[in-house]
Each structure stands twice: as C-alpha cells, then as structure tokens.
Nucleic acid binder design. Structure first.
Lengths: 216, 216
DNA sequence: TACTAGATGATAACCATTCGCAAGTCAAGC
DNA sequence: GCTTGACTTGCGAATGGTTATCATCTAGTA
C-alpha cells in the first residue's frame, strides 16, 4: 500500500503544520473546509490516521474524549489544563527512568507518554476574578456546557419564578398541577444545572442563571 | 450532596477491588451483572464516576477509547501493551522532574500521568511463534475485531472460493455479473479485513480466514 | 491506453458514554 | 408511624467522536 499525495492530503498536512497547536480532527476539518469546502470529515479522519501511520504526523492519545494530532515529530511531553482543556508542549529530558523500569517487566518498549495535568495561568487568573462559584470538579465533568431546558423543566422553573420567596416543591406541585414526586425530581435536575438553588433546606428558588436560561 | 452506600454501589466497589486489573465500565458491568442481574449499565457508569469523585477509586484516562477504573489509590504509573491492550502497574519514583518543568510554565500542577507503551512478554512470545503476518500496527486500530461480512462482500467471496487458483477481479465480475469496478472495490475491503490476499499482482485468492468467515 | 490500486464524499453504522424521566428507597422531622 | 424530599435506580433514548461502506473518481503502471 502506497500513499498518494493528493490535494486533500496535502492541505490537511499543511494546515496541521501551520497551526502550532494540537488540533482535534474536527478543528482541523473546520479549517480545511474554508479552503476546500467540499472536503469530507471522513477524509480528514482517514488522512490523519494514514499520515500518522507513515509517521508524517503524530497521533496523541491524551486526556479527554477526542484524539489530537501533532505535526511535531520529536519526542516531547504534554501539559494539560483540566479547566480549559488546552494542551501545551513540555520538554523534559530524563527519559531513561521509565524505559529501565519498563524493561524490568519484560516489555519491549515502543514509547512513553508523560502527561502533566494542572491549571494553566489563564484559568488561574479567571478563577481569582470570580471565585464565588464552588466548582467541585465533579458534577458536570468535562465540558461544563449547560444542558438545554426540557419543556417539563421549564414548567417547574416558570412556576418557581412566579414565587416571590423560596418555596417548597409541594407549592410548585400545587401551582403546576404536577405530582410532587415529579416536581422534586425535576428540581434536582435543575439544581444540578445551577438553575435552582436551595437557600433553606427543602425550599427552592430560581437562580439568576435560571432566569437567563428561561428567557433564552 | 452525600453518598449512600447502596447495594449496587457496594457490589460495584467490591468487584472492582476483587479484580486486581484495570477494568472498563462494561467489563465490570458484566461481572456485576452475574451477581445482580437487573443492574443497569448506567448505574455502573454513574457509580464509577461518583466513587472516583469521592476518591474511593481512581479513574484512569489511558490509551484506547474506553476509560478504565482502578481500586488502587496510591500514585503509580502504567505500562500498556499495544498488541493485547492490557495494562499493568508500574512503579517509578522520580516525580519531581515533571513537576518542576510544569511550574516553569506557570501551571498549578494537579497530577501527572506516565504511560509507557510496549509489547508485553506474552505478546512477544506469540509473535515469535507465527511470524508470517506483517502487522503494521496501523490498519485496524484499537480493537482489531474482524468486521462482519456484508452480503455484497459475501457474494464476491463465494465466487472467489469457487476458483481453484488466484483470479482477477475481471473473472469475479464475470462470475457474479457485477461490474468490475464494484468487484475491485469490494476486494479492497476484503483484503483489508484479511479475508482475501493477493499472491500475484492483480490476482486474488480467498484466505483461510476468509473461508472461516464465510462459514460463520 | 486499459486496468486497477488507491482516494474521495456522503452517509450510515458503531460504540462508549451520558442524559432524562419515572419510580423506588431511605433518613430525618413532624 | 407517616410524610417529605434527597438520593438512587433502571430503562431507553440521545449524544458525539470515530469508522465503515459503497459508488464514483483519479492517477500510476503494464
């Protein structure tokens, strides 16, 4: 099997090299599409795979769900920001440690990957600015994108908005005609999204985020 | 938010601890299901996530598409076999190197992950035994499970089986009544799966694997 | 120049994971 | 003891990244 240097392939390679970052397949797809609108996402995936097979580029299997690709071929490690999910290069010598240890188990070593995780300076600054929110790390892991409101949830949220002060789920049930069980379940979901808070035990109120989300 | 130790949760934790390996969510699900048949896969996922939030277990985001979970909490690294995809623990001290380098970039370090890749002793032995097959590493990445045969591919494969000696795609086309273009395309796919080989350029024959696959 | 390996675009399939919902269970307060 | 609401569960549908399939195109090679 032998590779042809097609125009698509060339473009993909060039764009990856041009961007010094570690792009995901579809970030690269977005860029390439601007220059070659009819290119298919499948072609991008295929070529990234192929190009890394022949070692013209390097596939990084790092944290997160998406693979990333790198045009830099020399061995280097990565540092990964757990908040913004950006990845930077890191240069550390001292590779011999791991190789020796590996050999002790009878393995033939083919490579090694060091990934340091942390919070990048940018995110640290952001954190200091608005440090009211207690982000437990858990909860919405990974992309902390706010879920969309379902109609059922909206119903509860609207009722809650109409209350002047924190109300019990029982009150919401009365207002909406729903069963309290359903209400309580939906409140839980809304709380997780940050649209509802509980200032007093068993009393709930809509948050500012919740109001924004309703209007959106 | 406070966790209850439900029977499901307990079982999941116990089974993970029992197996010394690094299980994926659904490997664990298979085990747990034997003891609690009505448990849901979602429950397993949920609990693994929750348990790792409270640090009763540890989530490993290692190579491959699936996450793995580990009941061992101390810091340790991993060695990963690129052929059988098994993972073993590895103990290397010397963590300070990476941390220092990370700090230089202004990061607040939260963790680090070293993954050595290689071929495990078991796979090395296997390799020596039957070393006729050139497995380029590429091709079917990850799970190297053979694709299922489509009806179209079967058609071509059957025709090929009926030939005593390697035949050209033209011959297959004649035998099946298909266009040679289609045939050639399917042959390519079959070759990639290892069901067809090309002993001579432009001549194809069904492989033993191919025959097995047909009968299956 | 004919033939075919290799590439492409479109789209369907895949697979691990997550979400939404309704129903269940447990602990605390009345 | 009964009620209430927080926390769980099972089910099933949705999501999202990635891969496979197929027909068609294109470019090397005999």
């Amino acid at each position: 099997m032998q590779l042809r240097m097609t125009s698509q392939r060339e473009l993909i390679l060039r764009e990856l090299k041009k961007s010094k970052k570690h792009l995901t397949a579809d970030e690269l797809y977005e860029r390439v599409k601007k220059l070659m609108p009819r290119i298919s996402l499948a072609t991008v995936y295929r070529n990234l795979e192929l190009l890394s097979d022949v070692e013209l580029i390097r596939k990084l299997e790092v944290s997160g769900r998406q693979k990333r690709f790198d045009s830099e071929l020399e061995d280097h490690d990565h540092i990964y920001c757990v908040q913004c999910h950006c990845i930077e290069n890191l240069n550390i010598g001292n590779n011999t440690v791991s190789l020796a240890a590996g050999h002790m188990k009878g393995y033939t070593i083919t490579g090694r990957r060091l990934e340091v995780t942390g919070i990048c300076p940018r995110c640290q600054r952001k954190q200091i600015k608005k440090d009211g929110k207690h982000s437990k790390g858990g909860g919405t892991v990974g992309c902390a994108k706010k879920g969309v409101l379902s109609d059922e949830q909206k119903e509860v949220l609207v009722a809650m908005k109409n209350c002047d002060e924190p109300c019990a789920s029982k009150d919401i049930a009365a207002a909406t005609g729903l069963e309290t069980k359903q209400v309580s379940c939906r409140i839980t979901a809304l709380k997780k999204k940050g649209y509802v808070e509980s200032p007093v035990r068993c009393k709930y109120a809509i948050t500012n985020d919740g109001i924004t989300a309703l209007n959106a």
